[in-house]
Amino acid sequence: MKSAVIVFPGSNCDRDLAVGLERASGKPSQMVWHKEASLPEGLDVVAIPGGFSFGDYLRCGAIAARMPIMKAVVDFANKGGHVIGVCNGFQVLIESGLLPGALMRNAGLKFACKDVELVTATTNSAYTSELQKGGRITVPIAHHDGNYIADPELLAKLQGEDRVAFRYLDNPNGSVDNIAGVLSANRRVLGMMPHPERLNDPALGGNDGAKIFESLVASLSVPA
């Protein structure tokens, strides 16, 4: 599995994400600066990291979503490529139109930074294929604007099409229907607020996050 991590000014989980992808796939992830107009050839996965791209100016992810590389990422996704956005990366994917809905200020107004339990809502995606539906994984959150908003029509669509990937067991931010992660219509773009790359090593307290990267590798690696 060949992957790339997009780097914006203010990204701060880019290296962790690359480590997560590399550990699962055995291949180093390529770091791609946001000013590039094209992606490396032959990629299977593009990952948009967490952080505070462009200082969260205007709206979280809004400026990053308009940078040259994002045109290439949107093209890649539209051609059926897999794209995962974590935290600020989720915000960037929403701002770039690859995922629906909006992420607003946490209902409690506080920056939420803690481990949370997620319930896997679907295993029908490359990101969740190795997880158990209804099973729980522990992954940290660290965000101020993770309150996922969908109008009733969109929410019904997401539920009807089985596009909610993860739900919070104990909602930390006011997200509608406890949504922590959503999939695109073709199920190949995933946005999630929790950080799987931050709980990816038993030495750091757990490696539940690794299961998402391992699912990706299992789903996307062509057997030799």
Binding site: L58, R59, A62, R66, E95, P100, A102, M104, I149
Partner: peptide
């Protein structure tokens, strides 16, 4: 439409 507002919200 393209940047200043998020017309979803």
């Amino acid at each position: 439409e393209k940047l200043l507002a998020n017309t979803v919200i």
